[in-house]
Every structure is written in C-alpha cells, then in structure tokens.
Design a protein around this nucleic acid. Structure first.
Lengths: 120, 120
DNA sequence: CGCTTCGTACGATAGCTCTCGTAGTACGGG
DNA sequence: CCCGTACTACGAGAGCTATCGTACGAAGCG
C-alpha cells in the first residue's frame, strides 16, 4: 500500500545497457516468428506501440513473455504509460553497436514474407 | 554388405533447396556461439574446410550436431571427400535470398569480437 | 468505491537443444 | 585383411523455451 507522490510512472523495467547487448541474444530473439512479427511492426513506425496493439495468435501471458525476451536482449525498450506498456525499437543503440544489421535483417524478413506470399 | 561400383561418394547429405531456406532458421543457427565461430571461420576463406579443422571446446559428437544444424538450416553445404567431410558457406544461395544479410551478421560478429577483446 | 482494461507473476507442461559417452560405419593405407 | 582416422548414430541427461491457465496488481473511469 505504499503511496506514490509523483504523477509519473513508478513501475520500472530493467533494460540492458548498450554495451551489454549481445549479437547472440539479438539473433536468438529474432529467430522466433512471434517476436520477429513484433519487431517488424515496430520498425514501420517512429511511434511507440502498446503491447495490446499487437494481435498475436498466442495468449496474453505468452505475449508478455516474448516482449520480455525482446527487452532483455536489448532489441526493444519498454516503458509504462498509464495502464499501457509502450514499446519501441532501440534503433540508436543497435545501429551504434552493429551498423546496418537491423536493416539487413528487416529487409531479409520483408523479402521472405514477400516470397512466401505473406505480403508486406 | 551392399557393394558399390562407383568410385565417387556414396554417402549423401540432405540439404534444403535454396527456396526452402528460412530466415528464422538462419538466425537460430547463428545464435549459438559454437556455430557462429564455425561460420566466421568459413567466411575467411574460399576453400572448404573439414570438420576436424575446427577445434571447438566440445566433443566430436556435439560438433557433428552443430554442423548438422548449420547444414539443415541452409547456412553451409557439406560433402564427403574420402573420410573427411568438407564444409563451405552457401554464399550464393544466401546472397540470392537475403542480399547483404550474411555480411551484416559477419560484420556484427567481428565488431562484437573486437569490442569484447576476442580480437579478429 | 467498484468496474474495466492492461499487463504481470507463478506454476505447469511439452518439446526442443546442447552436451556427453559409447558404440559403430565408411574410407584409405599398408 | 587389418588398422587408424574421420565422422555418425543412438541414448541419455540437464536446461532452456514456448505455451497455457489462473490469479493477481496498477491505472483510469465513472
């Protein structure tokens, strides 16, 4: 029952620092179809998207799990905004660490989607 | 006891066709340190390298396992040459499917290795 | 103060995966 | 024909992972 005086958010989320991000972790995170889907959606916009914005064919707890994997691997950043949890790609960090990598992977994903008829 | 009349190799290895290669599978294959190590070594040369050329800190059966994962995901091609099994990157196929992807990942791996002091 | 919406925590389960050891097959050389 | 080298197959174990369901907490709305 601790009272909070600030208007802003209390719930904090642990993110790896830029230097802690590992290529291995990124590749692993993106090797799951659900997570790749999320990242591709995030890449299409500058805005942050809420978790509930995504409609994945899995339950909500599983979705939470995937977002956590993405956050802990350093691919996305998450912040609470009211009841919603907003998600954004860590573009600056990823580009600084591995220039061109994210774009190559996104391009590859897009290519494959097109090739397999998923479109987009 | 089947006798073979041909002089060339009998043992065939199953490889995915180019169109069967999946990005997901590639990323997963490369998200393992041992396998990334192998791929990085293969990328440094045009030649094919035998499995025994690699000295990984795991047993031989584990090594066999990793090579199989790489082959089945379409990252490498393998062929028997006498008692040896030669390995080569499937550069042409990968570049055709996902232009720039392999190089970006290799570059990222190299960057991280440098950053972490592994050198090379 | 309830109610709703959004997301989390926890426990469970099935399946995969990395690892090993042992036993075995294929090839080439003497 | 036997032996050594190179790699495989199989079985097993420990650990991770994707998934679910249920129960819960946090924020906002009326």
């Amino acid at each position: 029952m601790r009272r909070v005086t600030t208007v802003t958010n209390t719930r904090e989320l642990a993110h790896p620092a830029r230097e802690e991000i590992r290529l291995e972790g990124i590749l692993h995170a993106l090797s799951d179809p659900m997570r790749m889907r999320v990242v591709r959606a995030l890449a299409t916009t500058e805005d942050e998207l809420s978790c509930s914005h995504f409609v994945l064919p899995v339950t909500k707890s599983t979705t939470t799990h995937h977002f956590r994997v993405l956050r802990e691997s350093g691919v996305i950043q998450q912040v609470y905004r009211g009841t919603a949890k907003m998600n954004g790609l860590r573009r600056a960090d990823l580009d600084a660490l591995f220039p061109g990598l994210l774009d190559s992977i996104l391009e590859a994903a897009s290519r494959e989607a097109g090739r397999l008829g998923d479109e987009a």
